[in-house]
Computed example of a mutant assay.
Amino acid sequence: MARWHQRTTAWVGRIRATGRLPFLQVVKISVAAIASWFAADALIAEEPPIFAVIAALIVVQPSVNQSLGRALERSIGVIVGVVLATGISLLFGSAAWIILVAVVLSVLLAWALRLSQQTSNQIPISAMLVLALGAASPIYAIDRIAETVLGAAIAFVVNLLIVPPVLVEPARREVKALAEELARSLERLAVASSEPVGRGALQGHLVEVRLLRPMLARAQAAVLTAEDSLALNWRGGRHRGELEGYDAGLVALGVLVTRVSGMTRTMRDHYDDSLHREPVMGQIAAELRRAAHDLRIRYVLAAPGDAVASDTGPLLTAPLVVVSPHPEHWVVIGSMLEDLRRVHEELTAE
């Protein structure tokens, strides 16, 4: 019973999204479908404007740029599918088996032309619809193509004019979350450098720091999505500078993820309870805390698009005085100092 429940839950999870579409998106899809129906019915008439509504449903996407891409894919797919279906109908008549032939030929044609997945799907679907309705003729084909282009154009305009989405906030949130977690990792290293914490705690730190890579990937994906949402978007002008700052910042944060991960691993591998007694470790702990401070100033507390808050400069400026360490500690100290130098370079770079 438990296994059946797990399988049922997995099946349901495949057909349900983790979140709902924004209600505004639902409204725009509905407006585009209604407008496409009435416009095609008034201009092209005779047949129910099914192709126009299908185009409208497909073309309204989360971003204007994606809408343009879907409009082109849908239009090209329909043109090829309708022309193919019309040609097959004129050559072989209207037998039911012709539909299957049209589907196979459509799939082969899309493969031969190396068309995108969306365009490839549209060709056989359009061919099937034309043949199933049983009205394949040159005039019918032209009307269906015009209907599709009209529906796609209306949907694109609707998505462009009715509050086109600006997905900058998720990018801002992900970048700040990554920077905050990096700062916490630096502070954990500072504690381990200044007091005995035990290998168990350091193993936990290593597990936590490994989460930085997925966080970096999420931040990069969020910035790419935000950039896509601003393309062709009349609301995006004031956000482009902010996104450029995040894009450049993620390069530096990626380097810091590598450095902090290496420092944490080095500390775990070479730690002993007497390490904090080395004179330089207190200085290293202070620099790690300064680095965490500067990281928050630069990426968490700064205003959107600003590199560093104007009223607070970086603190990571104090030179370190290194006394010859115990032979068992020189590896970890040397490694920490080199990684700190690279962290300093990333945080002070303009």
Rank of each mutant, 00 (worst) to 15 (best):
R184L: 13
V308T: 14
W11Q: 06
L243A: 07
A10T: 07
S30K: 06
V343L: 11
I88R: 14
I44H: 02
V343R: 04
L340W: 04
H205M: 13
A110C: 06
T312E: 11
V101F: 02
E187K: 07
I154E: 03
Q122H: 02
Y299V: 07
A307C: 00
P22Y: 07
S193F: 00
R238P: 05
N65G: 09
V163H: 11
L216W: 04
V168M: 05
S261D: 06
M1A: 12
R173C: 01
E169L: 13
M215W: 03
V26W: 09
Q220C: 09
A231Y: 05
H270M: 15
L113K: 04
F51I: 13
S30P: 05
P138T: 05
Q118W: 12
R7Y: 05
A303D: 10
M281A: 12
S185G: 12
Q25F: 08
A190Q: 02
L301T: 03
V322L: 04
M267K: 08
L90N: 08
A226K: 04
V257E: 01
N159D: 09
V251A: 14
A42V: 11
R3E: 15
T119V: 09
L43R: 11
A291Y: 00
R277T: 12
L90A: 13
L100W: 14
L133S: 12
I58Y: 10
S185F: 00
I44E: 03
L133T: 13
W37Q: 08
G19S: 08
R173E: 12
V323P: 00
D269S: 15
I34V: 14
A96L: 15
T348K: 10
L315Y: 10
A132G: 08
M267C: 03
E147D: 01
A85T: 07
L161N: 02
V27Q: 05
V257W: 01
L115I: 00
H326T: 15
Q220E: 15
S30Q: 11
I154M: 04
P314A: 09
R144W: 01
A285T: 10
S67N: 05
N121G: 04
R265M: 06
E287N: 12
L216N: 04
S67H: 07
E350N: 12
V82L: 03
L337K: 08
R268K: 15
I15S: 08
H205N: 13
E244D: 14
T8D: 06
A32M: 07
E346D: 10
V130F: 00
A179F: 05
V207D: 15
V163L: 14
L288D: 02
V255Y: 09
E242W: 08
S75V: 08
E180T: 11
G236H: 07
P327V: 14
P214A: 03
G282V: 01
L301M: 00
V197F: 04
L206Y: 12
G198F: 05
M215E: 02
A201L: 13
G262D: 13
L202G: 10
R7A: 10
R184N: 14
A39V: 15
V332A: 06
E73R: 11
I29D: 00
G245S: 06
G198S: 10
Q283I: 11
A110N: 06
L295G: 07
E169Q: 15
V31W: 10
L105G: 02
G77Q: 02
F156V: 09
G305Q: 07
L347A: 03
A110W: 00
A56N: 00
G305I: 02
L256A: 11
I125M: 05
